[in-house]
Write a protein that binds this DNA or RNA. Structure first.
Lengths: 196, 196
DNA sequence: GATAGAAGAATGAACGTTCATTCCGCCTGC
DNA sequence: GCAGGCGGAATGAACGTTCATTCTTCTATC
């Protein structure tokens, strides 16, 4: 874990390059150059490219989680938790566009699909806060009565789409817009007692 | 247009293979085999792989549009149009998963980004029905006052996410679920006169 | 209608390039 | 002086693309 810093350089350079150029636009030779190491050195730290990609994903996830959960409390009402989680997610990705781009690439790869299946079905080792929040919301009748994957799609689909648009420069998200966007997502998932 | 059928075979095989295996998992040699033509033949019909990919996208788009617009009328109220378009989209992709997978791949490629920019900014040659609908909705005060890209994200983000989940088998969409999902998207974009 | 010859469509082996991975000599710290 | 980390040239597999050749279709002539 607390290994030498060549490994860190490789990880850092890989994140940067893959986020910018995608998996297939990222040859190991260029990675070596960007990381300031020899091509062979990479293989001292990672068995092969695939392992490097998966490892980087794992490290990213571990970097993101704590930030999202800052000040998060299971005690708060569902709505409040939802808004907090949603805007924390948006904020994090806006501040770390490379992380976003990388995760996006990863999720669109075959390996990413397995990962998503695990998330949805709760086979995840770590206590999954999102899943917990949604199950709470359903139980309390605060969410629409829809299957979990649909609720997830309603909540996170727009957040990811809007983040991509922001990073690509199609829209400029500020604090106010972030809040209103997440609230719109809440409107999508919440059960509405009232009619149009 | 009404060219020989070798071209059609190549297009068909390309859609199938790329939808299943992605751009980079689809060598021209295998495409040739699947299409039942020689490798060189492909290059009689398409300048290179990139052109083939773009051409296939164009043809797909032209296949999808008419289906979405069946029975669509600009005269109807915004809400009704929204629900109709949304569920038509969902239904089409569920019936044509290969089309969906291909379009998804394409949109996540560099070329796809340019395409999206054009869509959002209305530089599109053909009259874009979605854009028109959303501008109508904003003008009539039926939509939340949010930038167009955010509204697009709220509406289509979940639809695409839920379609992917359906195709991957994470959820089973039927007519009822489709309707309720699109209605939830409507809740996200519509301006709510009432409070929580 | 039959046939020879031209035109162009189709083929797939071969080419050059790119890439992940390996290998081996070098250098550094002890 | 030596053990092990390191660099980067070497390797071979895989790929997109090309091109000399073969096959098919059409046309002109009798």
């Amino acid at each position: 874990m607390a290994k030498p810093d060549k490994r860190d350089e490789i990880i850092r350079a890989a994140l940067e390059m893959i986020a910018e150029q995608g998996f297939h636009g990222s040859p190991m030779a260029e990675l070596a150059k960007r990381a300031g190491v020899g091509a062979g050195t990479i293989y001292r730290y990672f068995e092969n490219k695939e392992v490097l990609i998966a490892e980087l994903y794992r490290e990213l996830e571990e970097r993101v989680y704590p930030v999202l959960l800052e000040g998060y409390s299971t005690e708060r009402p569902v709505r409040e938790r939802f808004l907090q989680l949603g805007s924390a997610l948006l904020r994090y990705f806006i501040e770390h566009p490379l992380d976003f781009r990388y995760l996006e690439q990863f999720h669109n790869s075959p390996y990413g699909v397995e990962c998503r299946r695990a998330k949805l079905f709760g086979e995840n080792g770590k206590q999954d806060v999102c899943r917990e929040l949604f199950l709470d919301g359903i139980a309390a009748g605060e969410f629409k009565e829809l299957p979990l994957p649909v609720l997830f799609a309603l909540a996170f689909g727009p957040l990811l789409a809007v983040t991509r648009d922001h990073i690509l420069g199609f829209v400029a998200l500020d604090e106010g817009l972030i809040a209103r966007t997440v609230e719109a997502c809440w409107d999508a998932v919440r059960s509405q007692a009232l009619d149009q």
